[in-house]
Design a binder for these strands. Structure first.
Length: 230
DNA sequence: AACCCCAGCAACCGCGATAGG
DNA sequence: TCCTATCGCGGTTGCTGGGGT
């Protein structure tokens, strides 16, 4: 239906979706699948742009969307992941089954950012605490490596989470990994091993050495192995 | 009752990445 | 290789409802 002349951008419906629009969209997606959003919008007879249809589906109509309050466990996970990944909402959402990136982003902006700021003020930490925590973690690991103690089980006393407890290396084929830079340390990358993996046991840290991606057990070890100076 | 303020959330916008012709 | 369409992400906007004055 791409040959239909689409309405001008300004002629598209905007604003909240009606139940009727939701129904039409869901029906077309059930038949044609959730792709080619522009086509879906046309087939459904929705005077909406494809982008709007996709957003509505992804954030509201998609099956297995979990509505309702974020649990304490989920909140804790969001805080930890945000500390590590920053505003990578889609990555964070990928670790919270049923939650959307938009929902997590909103939750962060309306709840957690304030909470974090309050904690920062109370502890005297700067707004760059998360970055500093990463730095401390790396620095500590390097010190341990220098001392010949670069094992994976070393605790970092200055940060509020234990990397070994939080990140458990799994035997993932590294060729399948998605490599993501963490902060300023280009030798350290993190991979979301399995989308929507239902537990916290989801990530592995790895490092890139001589162009070859090699898995390491955890962040401490990854950095210790990297030999990169800060 | 009327008004204002603010929190929460759905939706929009712009941009970069990717796919396909 | 280039160009266009499409997708996906993150930032931002604006609407709505609740609470306070």
């Amino acid at each position: 239906m791409e040959d239909n002349v689409p309405p001008n951008r300004s002629e598209f419906n905007k604003g909240p979706w009606t139940a009727e629009e939701d129904r039409k969209l869901a029906e077309v997606i059930a038949v044609h699948g959730a792709r080619r959003w522009k086509t879906i919008a046309n087939i459904a007879g929705l005077n909406r742009c494809g982008k709007s249809c996709r957003l509505r589906w992804m954030n509201y109509l998609r099956p297995n969307i979990k509505r309702g309050n974020i649990t304490d466990q989920e909140e804790d996970l969001i805080l930890r992941l945000h500390k590590l990944l920053g505003n990578r909402w889609s990555l964070i959402a990928g670790r919270l089954p049923g939650r959307t990136d938009n929902e997590i982003k909103n939750y962060w902006n309306s709840h957690l950012s304030k909470k974090v700021n309050q904690n920062d003020k109370q502890s005297g930490a700067s707004a760059r605490q998360g970055c500093k925590a990463q730095k401390r973690l790396v620095k500590n690991a390097k010190e341990q490596a220098r001392e010949g103690n670069a094992s994976a089980g070393c605790e970092e006393p200055n940060i509020d989470f234990n990397a070994d407890e939080f990140f458990d290396f799994s035997n993932e084929d590294t060729r399948n990994l998605e490599w993501i830079m963490i902060g300023e340390f280009d030798a350290v990358r993190v991979k979301s091993v399995k989308p929507c993996y239902p537990t916290m046991n989801w990530a592995c840290f790895s490092l890139k050495m001589s162009g070859k991606k090699q898995p390491c057990g955890d962040l401490n070890r990854a950095v210790a192995c990297s030999g990169k100076s800060l």
